[in-house]
């Protein structure tokens, strides 16, 4: 395996239920090249052949095999200093994105790591210029963003880091979802939590 981290993160994404059997995609930046998972690859079972190399600024034959979200990944790399991107379809985060413009965690880990997660909305949600133009600028300021009704894009210097933000996002949203179901105001335990929406 050339890039073991792809296999590790892909397996964990599926095992955690954050993607369906053929959903999600991963990439890393190597200078002016991008390594990205193959279109339709099963992230839980990645092999060497599932890692596709293509250009960051220019297309080449590799793009024929690359994930359909390559356009979003490229935009993120062009507009941020990210070296890795994880795209997933976390169930609770996607559910809440249908109701809210921003996701503000109430749990300790989410508060600590994320503070708040913006939600962006596009009509064409998959592999579109529209998503690319919305997501990339937000990731210049935040670690992770949710595309309404679709999924999350997280950035890091390593795949593991972007995976961590994705995992923390869904954990926070699971708790937010339950809090909403219970319908009672929470007993606040944090200081300055009223400022989280300004993060």
């Amino acid at each position: 395996m050339r890039y073991e981290e792809f296999a590790l993160v892909g397996r964990d994404l599926f095992a955690s239920g954050l993607i369906s059997s053929h959903g999600g995609n991963l990439s890393v930046r190597m200078g002016d090249r991008v390594l990205i998972t193959r279109r339709g690859a099963m992230l839980a079972h990645l092999t060497d052949e599932d890692i596709i190399e293509t250009g960051l600024h220019k297309n080449d034959s590799g793009v024929a095999l690359a994930s359909s979200e390559i356009i979003v990944h490229r935009a993120i790399y062009r507009q941020t200093n990210a070296l890795a991107v994880v795209h997933a379809h976390p169930l609770c985060a996607v559910t809440l994105s249908l109701y809210q413009d921003t996701l503000v965690p109430v749990d300790s880990e989410g508060s600590y790591l994320l503070h708040q997660v913006p939600v962006v909305a596009a009509a064409m949600t998959i592999g579109s210029e529209e998503v690319a133009s919305l997501v990339a600028p937000v990731l210049a300021s935040y670690r992770v963003v949710v595309v309404r009704g679709h999924g999350s894009f997280a950035v890091g210097q390593f795949l593991e880091e972007a995976w961590q933000w994705t995992s923390a996002l869904e954990a926070s949203c699971q708790i937010l979802y339950r809090v909403k179901l219970l319908g009672q105001p929470i007993k606040e335990y944090r200081q300055q939590s009223e400022n989280y929406h300004t993060w």
Binding site: N81, L83, G156, F158
Partner: peptide, 19 residues
């Protein structure tokens, strides 16, 4: 910090050094 990488590997280190 922020994540551990293989310290003996050289491939891919350039991007990290630059950041």
């Amino acid at each position: 910090t922020p994540k551990r990488v293989n310290r003996f590997a050289w491939a891919g280190k350039a991007g990290l050094v630059i950041v």
